[in-house]
């Protein structure tokens, strides 16, 4: 009966012509969306599910046909592996320390650039300051490998010229982590500075004048005017930098290879080694899935926070 009714209804509805279908909204919407969906499915969704599949198997990349299903064994091996734990901890430490340094230094430099914005050469100076950000991270790593070379590097030469003892930059755990942090901060502070500067430029000058008329000191202006004005854009910068730091790889790969000991091992280097040096595709995929889950959790949390700030 139902089919009879539906058949009757469809017979009564005038069928759209083929020309009308091609010019209609639904077709145009599909024409725009479908290529993106195919792109996403092929390059993001399918590889993700394949990674999940591999992560549940004991398999080498050179022998994919000999995969053995092991359930969550690879995940268990990872969470109980002290090297993976160190990599996770190091990545979180590196993210926290470098983003904090980048915000503080970036703010100071941004303030300096804002205060000299009226000078003709300030644009040139600003461009120079942005240059580290434009260099490929691999090249940055290689440059600093030379700079911090304990025998032939300029860092120890400068220390020696002022009578200080040479430092084993990549040889001891603490200086090695500090060196990696320094390189990361050197390269990415300009990015944070750029965002903060954009935030500071967006504050109307009459608000500064009003604050001064009301007798506000510099720390009052900072606390009640500047920080509230830039916190949205800084949070956006933090989200981007967290994602960046979770992907941080090149500099460590070139300079320390995760050493000395496990002191500079980071998550991506761990996953890279498992996948492309040891060709343990199962363990490597499990590590990649864990990195992805961490990224999603942190980003979701941060985006919600950003929305709340914007609504405030």
């Amino acid at each position: 009966m139902a089919s009879l009714v539906s058949g009757t209804t469809s017979d009564m509805t005038p069928r759209p012509s083929r020309r009308a279908f091609y010019t209609g909204d639904r077709f145009q919407a599909a024409a725009f969306i479908v290529p993106s969906c195919i792109f996403l499915a092929l390059l993001t969704i399918w590889p993700f599910f394949y990674s999940v599949y591999l992560s549940l198997h004991r398999v080498r990349l050179t022998a994919l046909k000999r995969a053995v299903f092991v359930g969550f064994e690879n995940y268990w091996n990872l969470v109980t592996d002290t090297l993976f734990q160190h990599a996770l901890l190091n990545t979180l430490m590196l993210a926290t320390a470098s983003i904090a340094c980048e915000i503080i230094i970036g703010f100071v430099v941004a303030k300096a650039f804002v205060s000299i914005a009226h000078l003709r050469w300030s644009n040139w100076l600003r461009s120079f300051f942005l240059m580290p950000m434009m260099v490929t991270p691999l090249i940055v790593g290689m440059i600093f490998a030379y700079v911090f070379n304990p025998v032939l590097g300029i860092a120890n030469y400068l220390l020696n010229s002022v009578g200080l003892a040479p430092v084993s930059w990549f040889g001891d755990p603490f200086p090695a982590m500090l060196s990696i942090l320094l390189i990361n901060v050197w390269q990415w502070t300009p990015f944070m500075m750029l965002l903060i500067m954009a935030g500071l430029f967006s504050i109307r000058s009459d608000l500064y004048e009003a604050a001064r008329v009301d007798g506000a000191k510099w720390h009052h202006i900072l606390r009640f005017l500047e920080i509230p004005s830039i916190r949205g854009i800084v949070l956006l910068g933090i989200i981007l930098r967290i994602i960046d730091t979770l992907r941080f790889f090149d500099v460590v790969y070139v300079t320390t290879r995760g050493g000395p000991g496990d002191s500079t091992m980071v998550l991506t280097l761990y996953a890279y080694q498992q996948n492309f040096q040891f060709f343990q595709a199962g363990t490597g995929s499990a590590a990649a899935v864990i990195i992805l889950v961490i990224s999603i959790v942190i980003t979701t949390f941060a985006v919600r926070l950003l929305r709340r700030i914007e609504n405030d």
Binding site: N149, P150, V151, L152, N156, A165, P166, V167, S168, W169, F170, G171, D172, A176, T256, G259, P260
Partner: peptide
């Protein structure tokens, strides 16, 4: 030399050649 804990093939060969 200082930093010998992080030396590999290249660092050693360069230090010897220097």
């Amino acid at each position: 030399p200082p930093g010998v804990e992080s030396f590999a093939w290249d660092e050693r060969a360069n230090a010897f050649a220097a």
